[in-house]
């Protein structure tokens, strides 16, 4: 199955609730490497409505990170088209519609945590007073009050990743793109950050695209789970996951949760079957 449609009225307000925020149409992306072309994405179709939390899950090489990067205009599709709020990805990037959280925190070591969070604000020309106010709010949002004057390398990995989330949110982008942000962290920290992220999403009403390796993480966070398979990278299933927005960690024990997790697992296995 190549096509997946997942528009639905968004829960939070937005100008045109039925208009997809992100629309991926028949996108293919090929990397030409020394060993020949690699088909990172093949004929991918996807629509994401405002306020959705969409997870991308699949084995390594399924193109989930490439798809996220293509949406952010960090990669250019070989074929097909991606529209973001009706604009090209480049326009959307130049209009600063994305906050991107990478696999590593990528905080600049010569800046304090506060000045790291202020970095996009400085680049976008916010006034000093505005910067200070937003940094203060950002630190509060990710529970890092009192750590603004520290340098990133003085914080734990989880705290660094939280700071990078505050940085991505500081300029209030409409869309949050997250590429395995918690991949390097241990289970307990990851659980805590997942809960904080959910709360954040609930409060801000942002559209989130979230790449992950973890089935429970995907099911716990998402309104939709996009299952992908490799060689060539494509979408094999889109699973709706309609738990309430203020879900707690305990829902992971419920039969509904386990049923969805199972469906994701089957989808992943089907993608794997031919290259075992």
């Amino acid at each position: 199955m190549d096509t997946a449609s997942m528009t639905r009225p968004a829960a939070e307000g937005g100008s045109a609730p039925n208009e997809p925020v992100i629309e991926v149409s028949d996108v293919s992306l090929r990397f030409d490497t020394r060993d020949g072309p690699v088909h990172a994405l093949a004929h991918v179709n996807l629509k994401v409505a405002r306020g959705e939390f969409v997870s991308f899950i699949g084995p390594s090489g399924c193109g989930k990170t490439t798809l996220l990067r293509a949406v952010a205009d960090l990669e250019t599709p070989t074929e097909g088209d991606i529209r973001v709020e009706g604009m090209s990805t480049e326009e959307a990037r130049l209009k600063r519609r994305y906050g991107y959280v990478f696999q590593a925190p990528a905080l600049y070591p010569w800046r304090t945590v506060a000045r790291n969070i202020a970095l996009p604000l400085e680049i976008m020309g916010f006034s000093k007073a505005e910067r200070e106010e937003r940094v203060r709010k950002g630190l509060e949002l990710v529970n890092l009050e009192g750590f603004g004057a520290k340098f990133p390398w003085q914080l734990s990995g989880g705290m660094q990743q939280r700071a990078s989330i505050a940085r991505a949110l500081s300029f209030d982008p409409d869309i949050l793109l997250m590429d395995e942000p918690f991949g390097a962290l241990d289970e307990i920290v990851r659980d805590m950050l997942n809960q904080q992220l959910l709360r954040l999403w609930e409060v801000t009403g942002k559209t989130v695209l979230f790449v992950t390796h973890s089935i429970p993480e995907a099911v716990f966070l998402s309104t939709h789970i996009v299952v992908m398979s490799p060689r060539p990278g494509r979408i094999t299933d889109v699973i709706t996951c309609d738990f309430p927005r203020d879900r707690q960690l305990e829902i992971r024990e419920t039969p509904e949760f386990l049923a969805i997790a199972n469906r994701v697992r089957h989808g992943l296995r089907a993608g794997h079957s031919y290259d075992a």
Binding site: G99, Y100, L119, I123
Partner: peptide, 14 residues
């Protein structure tokens, strides 16, 4: 500077 650090600046349209 690493590719990731540069990509970050790109996402800010710096």
């Amino acid at each position: 500077a690493s590719a990731m650090e540069r990509d970050l600046m790109k996402t800010y349209a710096a």
